[in-house]
Amino acid sequence: MGCFHSKTRKQFPGHEDPVLLASQTAFSVSEVEALFELFKSISSSVIDDGLINKEELQLALFKNRKKENLFANRIFDLFDVKQKGVIDFGDFVRLLNVFHPNAPQEDKINLSFKLYDMDGTGYIERQEVKQMLIALLCESEMKLADETIEMILDKTFVEADIDQDGKIDKSEWHNFVTRNPSLLKIMTLPYLRDITTTFPSFVFNSEVDEVAT
């Protein structure tokens, strides 16, 4: 037992056991603890309650918390699987696990489908894609005429919507991203390989005797 060891953890509500989280994910115990350092800094940026709310996630993603942003909302919904309105540490680790460079490609494809299937119908509909395109244009202050947007959507759906029913189902999505692997780039975070180096202070807050697992 090191001199930094402490058994009193209830500092943050809903903080799951790092050993358990490591057993459920590709992360080691040390990596889970390093992720907790990141989680702590995000979850205390507005209200220090050990949970990440939408405003805090948006602040971390955009460095601002004022503007409502469709993409930040989508990411928040992916984290908040139980729809509690907040992200706890377990949600945080389990979602980031899919973004690990070693996570199965299948998990990345499924999660990216969920990201674009905004209303959760099991299909990516043209209207959803259009809404996201418009949000992107607002975010980047890029201007495109509506007919150009429609052309982009036509081209995309010709390529992706194989049965031409106006929506992309899971197997069509699978097929499409396999042909366009660059679309999955956002589903991998190389940072996750070096998380213990990025947040070395986890060592001082570690609660397990053996962190080098």
Partner: peptide, 26 residues
């Protein structure tokens, strides 16, 4: 200025909001 050559998802995935890497810019 040739975004039309890209498909909608390629464009959307350039959003900063979808780039979780920014979470690590502490």
């Amino acid at each position: 200025a040739a975004p039309v050559t890209m498909n909608a998802f390629e464009l959307i995935s350039t959003s900063q909001g979808l780039n979780l890497g920014s979470l690590f810019d502490r």
